[in-house]
Design a protein around this nucleic acid. Sequence first.
DNA 1: CTATTATCGTTATAATTTTCACGTTATATT
DNA 2: AATATAACGTGAAAATTATAACGATAATAG
Lengths: 221, 221
Amino acid sequence: MKNMSVKKKRNGPIMFPKATLERLKMYHALLQEEKSEYISSEEIARKLSIKPEQVRKDISYLDYSGKPKVGYHISSLVDALDELFGTKLRDNIIIIGAGHLGKALANYKGFVNFGIRVVAIFDNDPEKLGTYAGELVVLPLKDLDRVIRRFNVKIGTICVPGESAQKTVDLLIKKGIKAIWNFAPVILEVPENILVENMDIARSVLTLKHLLDRTPTGKIR
Amino acid sequence: MKNMSVKKKRNGPIMFPKATLERLKMYHALLQEEKSEYISSEEIARKLSIKPEQVRKDISYLDYSGKPKVGYHISSLVDALDELFGTKLRDNIIIIGAGHLGKALANYKGFVNFGIRVVAIFDNDPEKLGTYAGELVVLPLKDLDRVIRRFNVKIGTICVPGESAQKTVDLLIKKGIKAIWNFAPVILEVPENILVENMDIARSVLTLKHLLDRTPTGKIR
DNA sequence: CTATTATCGTTATAATTTTCACGTTATATT
DNA sequence: AATATAACGTGAAAATTATAACGATAATAG
């Protein structure tokens, strides 16, 4: 009750609930598309099929306030979200695995919007070595060390097959990588100071299959 | 208190908490890799950095029971999860957008493990029409209708750029698609009977960036 | 065959997250 | 200038989810 507006101050890292972070990413996606100057919690909520109170609560975690009677000033709110996610700071990342997915990621033009730059792509398959993925030549893993140091790479992207994912990760960690962006369809074991974000792309379709079987819409199988 | 073992019976669709479903998918991924015959909640928990009670609670939602003193019989538990996700039933899906990502998905060999078959890939870019993505020829969108009907397609995969995602989705829904697997980096508006699973691949790296800035590990930027 | 023990399943408790309800404030109106 | 109003911000209540505690049971050992 005392000191009620200080909740959002940075005294010790605030922990965002996982679900809140996910929603904040959705607001970020939504607002980047918006053309108008202001938007209300109600409109955001409607577009995301959630409740306006939820939106206001989520935004209250940020270092940003809306205006009564008007709503949220979109570009300022986007700035606050950019701050939260660090999209204005650039991180150099590397991709391991120059298969279809690795190359697709290497070719993706949108990373710049998230403060990401792909500085190298690696593979040990002789067939792939020296071929191009976008602007980048596929390098052998023996160059890892050099690249990680030269570009101060913290994030490693795993696009190798499941079978080789764990040993690739072990290697990356040995070389100093701090965070793993994992596209392989396996669970990785890492030391607790290493971050892992799993992006098991294909498996994500199971949510749809599950729901299709259980909602009136999909019931007609 | 009365009728305590009926909780998991199918009387009206049970709603799984979103977080539980996500963990169940992780168990599925983990168990598929396991070589042994049995596994304990404790071991699952350790590998996923969660609590054993959580694992047992999650599994209690399933139509499956472990054995005291022994643990879970892995292949039976995988069966129960397969049942939950419908991986044994085949769904035919289509991909719209034959860019790098669309083609990478079309080439992905692992879908069979999830009961998914990609039956067609579409694009309206004349450059891409007629080119190949894996076994599939890229088709023009005018063939949508025919393909959806012929293969009874319920799931449409959006791999077009953000700008054209919404109108692509509108079209798919008009043609009878019931679920959208969205890889475009935008929020889609759909009628409430349509399912959407967002896979905003690039944006997912923001979680890592956010955490890197806030954990001892990553603090050295 | 009985006792012991490891591990599950489940109820009870605690923690977290969401929703509600309402007070506050900036803008618009008379 | 005072009043009305729309939308935010937030503390409190409700709902949900996670954790803990413990009783039940199957395997094992003696």
